[in-house]
């Protein structure tokens, strides 16, 4: 029996300083991951099965029970601007989105959004 796991990741990030006092950053990541079992071959003869009280064996779908397939997006956007000498304003947005395409005993699909603001004082 064969088991196959695969994952693919794409990511991109960039920093842009359009002005001396402003810096913009962005990151995007995408991951697709999957795992699956191959068909289980149950090759016991009917003659043997006939001797069993419970002879109704069937593993034809068992390989599908533990399949995994998920997609994940990671996005981060941030900006830093100089407001005065030694003082910067910082803004960022962070997203994680997980899509459980083939749930395994629990649907793990979920999402987290975080928005952050701050003032940075550099001594």
């Amino acid at each position: 029996m064969k088991n196959t796991a695969q994952f693919r990741t794409l990511f991109a990030a960039g920093t842009w300083k359009p002005y001396e006092s402003l810096e913009l950053q962005g990151e995007v990541g995408y991951t697709r991951a999957s795992e699956m079992m191959g068909q289980i071959l149950f090759n016991v003869s009917e003659e043997i099965l006939a001797k069993l009280h419970d002879s109704n064996y069937d593993l034809s779908e068992a390989h599908t029970y533990s399949n995994l397939d998920s997609k994940r997006w990671d996005v981060n956007l941030s900006a830093r601007a100089r407001l005065a000498k030694g003082i910067h304003g910082v803004v960022s947005y962070n997203l994680v989105k997980y899509d459980d395409v083939t749930p395994y005993l629990a649907d793990l699909s979920g999402r987290l959004d975080v928005f952050q603001v701050g003032l940075r004082w550099t001594l």
Binding site: F42, N56, D58, S66
Partner: peptide, 22 residues
């Protein structure tokens, strides 16, 4: 590897694993 494949590399199935409910 995910269960049960991980375990099946060194163990046989549980003896109830293939039974069909009837």
């Amino acid at each position: 590897a995910n269960e049960p494949f991980l375990c099946l590399q060194c163990h046989e199935f549980h003896f109830h694993a293939g039974l069909e409910a009837r």
